[in-house]
């Protein structure tokens, strides 16, 4: 298979040009074509010499690919299926919401983290995505022109594929890349502490941490990572990190009926998050096949939000989007995998 260019950094493209006997400025020209203009072949790169175009297409491929399947929800949310290099499938969700349109990208094929409530977790781990495969979900999204935000909340644990995720963030935000503001990008993690610190050091993007219960004993039953990197260690690091004025940390909290939805949970959340400038995104649990967990009713969800807000923690309910197509939960790709 030929090496793909899409997803490479300016430095990598310069080095690769030199390797082919082309001037190093070809690297910058390639960045222009790959990340600023809409081309789908080397032939369209008209400011490159004929020789350069021929050499590039002999030795490389662009690495762009369109989704192979699409599902549309009644509320406008769409779910796309892309093929990863290993022949497996990944999901990407497009979520329009008034003036805001978000793409939710996957970072791995499957996942190793085994969270009890997650369809991707049930699928097991099939491989890491390259930076190019992560970025292709943004670049080849039919609605790309509408996009205002990117969230790394699809399949996989982004910080378990840290190097490729960091490369993809570099391409998204660099002046020679897509030139996006890091404030439009959120990377979500279940709290792999060492990788989280490296991410905070090496990127400016927002951070979202999956919390799901403030009690250690409960969290370890939902998320095996709690055994290795307990929440209190994660919060200790977050508390001592200077997020500045622009950068945001938020916590994701999936509400499960009669498990993590009591007044005691509100109180404990307020206690452990004390002193951290943050917000909580409440998410209603959508049951996956054979799960022992249940979805809360609307009134519990709202009451939980109101109690947290009353405690001074800005809390919003993430609107249930694309429920009818199970947006970004791994089900579509799991079904495809089983075909």
């Amino acid at each position: 298979m030929q090496e793909k260019l899409f997803g490479k950094t300016l430095e990598e493209l310069k080095a690769l040009s030199l390797n082919l006997g082309l001037p190093s400025f070809t690297g910058r020209q390639l960045c222009e074509w790959l990340y600023k203009k809409e081309v789908s072949s080397f032939e369209q790169m008209t400011n490159l010499s004929k020789k350069a175009r021929a050499l590039l297409s002999e030795n490389h491929e662009l690495g762009l690919q369109l989704p192979v399947e699409e599902q549309v929800s009644v509320d406008g949310t769409k779910k796309y299926l892309f093929t990863a290099a290993n022949g497996k499938f990944i999901e990407t969700a497009y979520i329009p919401d008034g003036k805001r349109s978000t793409v939710c990208v996957s970072s791995q094929v499957g996942c190793k983290m085994g969270c009890l409530f997650c369809m991707t977790g049930k699928q097991g781990f099939q491989g890491n995505l390259t930076a190019g495969e992560i970025l292709n979900q943004y670049r080849s999204l039919p609605e790309r022109k509408e996009l205002t935000n990117i969230v790394y909340m699809g399949m996989g644990e982004p910080l378990d594929n840290l190097s490729e995720v960091l490369l993809s963030l570099e391409v998204l935000t660099a002046e020679w890349g897509f030139s996006l503001s890091p404030r439009r990008i959120t990377v979500s993690t279940i709290g792999i502490t060492p990788a989280m610190l490296e991410f905070l050091n090496r990127s400016e993007a927002h951070l979202a941490i999956s919390l799901h219960t403030p009690f250690d004993e409960e969290r370890r039953k939902l998320m095996p990572i709690q055994q290795v990197y307990p929440l209190k260690e994660v919060l200790k690091e977050i508390r001592s990190w200077d997020f500045g004025r622009q950068r945001r940390v938020s916590f994701e909290y999936i509400l499960f009926r009669d498990y993590n939805d009591s007044a005691a949970h509100v109180n404990e959340l307020s206690r452990i998050l004390h002193g951290i400038r943050c917000r909580i995104n409440l998410i209603r649990f959508h049951p996956i096949p054979d799960t022992p967990l249940e979805s809360p009713d609307e009134s519990t969800l709202e009451a939980f939000r109101n109690k947290l807000n009353a405690k001074g923690i800005t809390t919003t309910i993430r609107a249930s989007r694309g429920q009818d197509i199970w947006a970004a939960c791994g089900l579509l790709s799991t079904k495809r995998l089983q075909k």
């Binding site: 983290m113 085994g114 039953k221 095996p224 990572i225 055994q227 054979d290 967990l293």
Partner: peptide, 17 residues
């Protein structure tokens, strides 16, 4: 285990990821 009636909160896992 869950399909055989073990409550999920009796199961504690360590994953070698």
């Amino acid at each position: 285990l869950i399909s055989k009636g073990i409550p999920f909160d009796r199961i504690i896992s360590e994953i070698y990821f």
